[in-house]
Design a binder for these strands. Structure first.
Lengths: 163, 163
DNA sequence: TATTGTTATACTCTATAACTATA
DNA sequence: TATAGTTATAGAGTATAACAATA
């Protein structure tokens, strides 16, 4: 790990001033993301897979192209990701008889099962990360973060770090 | 970008429930980290460099080995990072006459100048990220994040994502 | 000629392990 | 024999661009 400049110096003098909020945000955020990745690894998926599965579940039959656009990645990246999910039996590529150029992507049965597991893990993750806060504080934190997210024009549900 | 499962589904029904706090944390945190990396790129350094410079500034004369341990990376990784900083004239490798196996690392003049710039950028970054919040809210956010960081046993100033 | 998906290629990042020089 | 640092190598991840099939 490295220490960004806004982290405060190492000496006792510097320790006394409050650590930067932006640094704390990115430190705690990275920790949360790492812990989540750890958790879902037991399902054999990576964070990018989680996003793909959710996008397919939300709109079954969509094409790889549309996923690439929404994820902000190049189509060839989606090929590899879907290859993986298909090999694990989580997703099915079905030929579209109307337009045989693209695939209609669907969750396989195992994919649906994994999605259920992911929701369970997501809840546990939430409780783990917020264990230090009571119900009121969690709501407070969420409110503050949502204010930042809105002002920074972050798209709800889209995670710039998970590709 | 992908959407983790705790992000809420895409449909209107799912939109209605509050987005997970853990997701928001990692989303906003990743955004903050990316913006910071963007900012410091004008200085020609990456986040890992920033950490190295700070560690060297805090304890001049230390060895590459000690940096590797504190960063939690392999020594060969430090070689490349210091190579870069030396090539840019930010850091000097000085032979230790007592033990000619290791180097004593010091900031070069340019390195000190860059550190000053980094502090300036760090302040601007802080104001940018927290622009949506007033002074009281920033303190509140910092308090909540510090509670999480402490409970999760995060080491102050050590960023798991910046290596 | 345009579009979807795939493959080939190359580039970056990083870890492992062998190696050099010093002790 | 042990330690600090370096280099060589290989592997993962990912983007670019050429390509095949279909429209």
């Amino acid at each position: 790990m490295s220490t960004p400049p806004w982290a405060g110096a190492d000496g006792p003098a510097a320790r006394s001033r409050p650590r930067g909020t932006a640094f704390l945000l990115s430190q705690v955020g990275a920790h949360a993301a790492a812990r989540f990745a750890e958790r879902i690894s037991e399902l054999g998926v990576i964070p990018a897979d989680v996003g793909l599965l959710r996008m397919i579940a939300a709109r079954p039959g969509r094409s790889q192209q549309s996923l690439a656009e929404e994820m902000g990645v190049v189509p060839s990246r989606v090929v590899a990701l879907i290859d993986n999910l298909e090999r694990k039996g989580l997703v099915e590529r079905r030929r579209n008889p109307q337009d045989r150029r693209n695939y209609a992507l669907h969750l396989a049965e195992e994919g649906t099962r994994v999605m259920t597991e992911m929701r369970r893990l997501g809840s546990a993750h939430e409780d783990d990360i917020c264990a230090a806060l009571d119900h009121t504080q969690r709501a407070q934190l969420a409110e503050l973060l949502e204010a930042i997210a809105a002002q920074q024009k972050l798209i709800p549900g889209v995670h710039p770090g998970y590709r």
